[in-house]
Each structure stands twice: as C-alpha cells, then as structure tokens.
Design a protein around this nucleic acid. Structure first.
Lengths: 204, 204
DNA sequence: CGGTTAAATTGAACATTGTTTATTTAATGG
DNA sequence: CCATTAAATAAACAATGTTCAATTTAACCG
C-alpha cells in the first residue's frame, strides 16, 4: 500500500509512542520490537523509520515522555519550606510513581545507547529540569549563592535514592524482603539530611 | 567433527567464561554473542549449549565470577574497627574495582533475566556473602543482637553507593562532570554515617 | 585388539530481530 | 487530468538465540 491520509505525521508519532508504552507496560523492554509497535498502530515496521531514526531513538522519546510524566508528578508536591518534609514528600512521590510504572521506569535506566552515542541535549535538559525540583527543595539548606553545592547535594541525594529503588525492584538485592521500599527511602532521606546537617552542607 | 579430547568439560567451561569476559571487557554486553564466544575458544555455538543452559545462564556465571572477584578485593581491606574509616575504605575499593572493570561491572546490573525467571540460590548466596563484608564493618555501630538492623543498614548503605556509581558511570546524570566519583562516594558515606549516628542506628 | 556404546561436536536449520530499499500508491497542485 | 512528491509496503539482508539430526571419536569392555 502507498501513501495514506489516515493520520498526520504527528498523530502517527503519538500513536507509535502510545503503542510502545503499552507494550513496555505489559511485557517490558525486551518485548518492544519495531514490528510489534507497527502492528499495534496498523502499519508496518518500515513506517516507523519515517518517524524515528532507529529503535534507540524511539526508546529515547518514550523515556522522555516518562520523564515528563514523572516531572509533573513531582511538581504536584507543594513545598512547605522545610527541606526534611519536602524531600520526604518527593521521595514518596517518586516511589509511588515507580510502583505505578515499574516497567516504564526500568526502561529509563535499562536502555543504553550503542557505544559512542550520546544522549541528545534536549533529553539531558529534561533531566536537569527534573533535578531542579530536588534542588529547589534543598534551597533553605544552602547559602543563596552556593549553586554548585546545592546542585551536587541534590544529585547525590537523588542518586542514592535511585540506588535503593533500583536494587530493590530488580531483585538483585534482598532489600524488599526486609523493608518495604517506601520505608527504605524514608529512612535514607532522613539519614542523609541529618548527615548533611551534621557534616555541613558544602562539599568537602 | 565429533568428540574431541582437546579439553575437559571443566577446562571448556573456564575457557568459555574467559572468552566471555574478554568480549565484555572489549565491547560490552551487546557484543556478547554465542557465536563470538564459541569462535574465540575454537568451537561452535552448539557446544556452548552443552556447558550452559542458555545465554542467560552463561551471563549469570560470568557475573558470579565478577562478584567473587569483587568480594575478594573487598576482603583485602583490613578492618580497623572504626566504621567510618572502614566503610570509607570499602567504598574506595569498590570505586577502584569499578574503574578497573567498568563493563564487567555494568553487566552485573544491566543483565535482567526473562520474566518469571529467578536468580539461582547459589548466586543470591554470593551476594549475601559480599554484603557480609559491609555488615562486618558496621558491627561496632550496633548492639550485638541487632542483626536485622545491621543488615538493613548495610543494604541501605550499599544501595545508596550503588546508585551514585551507577548513575555516574552511565552518563544518565551529570555527576561525573561535577564531582569525581571517588569524592562523591566519600561524601555520601561520610554523610550517611553521620546521619546514622544522629538519628540512631535502629530502623525507624 | 576389535566392536560397541555413548558422549561431544558440528553444521544446518528456524524463527526473530533491526534496518534498508525498490516499488507501489495516494495526495497535491498546476 | 497529469506530473510530482510524499508515504507506506513488502521483500530482502545480516545477525541473533536456540535446537537437533547426523557424524565423529574417545572410552569402555569382552
């Protein structure tokens, strides 16, 4: 079949990502094949290559959607000004996001680009934007001009939380069996903030 | 060609894993194909299926070797009895291990079994054994009978460190560009231990 | 030593995968 | 209404994991 007018390019783009999302939700990243995505939207694999450079590109766009989704959910949290409370709330929101989107969230980290490839700038920007939420919550802890320190602290905090979530949901460490994820994250955040207060917030 | 006496079953097993290790070291997990491993040891792909149930099985055995290797390196660290110093030393050893075996270390976490599959018990046991090193270093911080607390603390600590290492080496977060990994881990460990001292070591 | 057995190795096969391309078909616009 | 252009397809390719019948040969036993 040749040219069709069923859907605009943009519609197709959304349909493809929707299909990809569904597939990942149901069967995870390994099930995400070009032919399956195409079949789900009533086209053939070749058409996808009109929309995305290749499979990596499709996954990156899917991940971008996941990130935006997470970002807006984190921004629902109203800041109280108390870093402890705010970061705790963020942590809980994060855990809740994960539990509602496990597979989608996993793709965020499971997917690695081929060697030599770099993540596009607009993608990194989206990560930065999300990190901003954490940084904002940390603001009261830092002198107004200590941008770098606050940034580092936010990333350290975030990475640590990520580690706990990552290992506990992958079954690579028996954390879940010991302590529910929510509690582990709560505990981690509490300890980290307490530690930062003690040792001084500036990076050593 | 039929039965050969070039190598015993055990020799073959080691050769295969050696080949797999080399391939991962050079080109990462995606380059690890049955045919490549086989070619490297002078056999054909089919032979590998006499040694391993499937590719997952091979990767698990490779990961087991990596774990043992990491484990023995962590055990080189002589304990001083000061948790702060000991955990810092462990963290540095971990970072140093990673930097010497990045790709191999990545496979430890990048590889996920097919849905429904579980890691074999002997593999989980090997993880537990390694966690023991961290637990031992934490001993002075806990009452002698608080096994569960110490265990949880060790896993929380380890997961947090893992998160920092994981995100920084995957380029998914701009940590490396800010602070070298060693310093980030140092800082994280310091803050975590300080926090644990402040908030009490027992789990909330 | 010779014949039998059983293990090991192969090569070819299969279904799937990502990706490319020539070809066909529909929309567009003069 | 016809020429042009864009879009969609089907078919092809190489590479992958995995299986298996056929074959070769070491080991064993009389």
């Amino acid at each position: 079949m040749g040219r069709r007018s069923d859907h605009s390019r943009d519609e197709l783009y959304v349909m493809a990502l929707d299909a990809a999302e569904t597939i990942v939700r149901e069967d995870g990243l390994p099930a995400l094949t070009a032919r399956k995505v195409a079949a789900r939207i009533g086209y053939t694999a070749g058409t996808l290559y009109n929309l995305f450079r290749n499979q990596d590109d499709l996954v990156i766009h899917l991940n971008a959607r996941t990130l935006t989704c997470l970002d807006t959910e984190l921004r629902q949290i109203r800041r109280t000004g108390d870093p402890q409370a705010d970061i705790l709330a963020l942590g809980r929101a994060y855990v809740s996001f994960i539990s509602g989107n496990v597979r989608l969230w996993h793709v965020l980290f499971d997917h690695r680009l081929a060697a030599g490839q770099e993540l596009p700038d607009w993608y990194s920007a989206r990560i930065d934007r999300m990190m901003g939420v954490v940084e904002d919550a940390l603001t009261p802890l830092f002198p107004a001009d200590a941008f770098a320190d606050r940034r580092s602290a936010a990333r350290l905090l975030w990475s640590a939380v990520h580690g706990v979530c990552s290992l506990s949901t992958s079954g690579k460490l028996g954390i879940v069996t010991d302590v529910p994820l929510t509690e582990a994250v709560d505990r981690l955040v509490t300890v980290l903030l307490a530690g930062m207060a003690t040792t001084g917030t500036e990076m050593s």
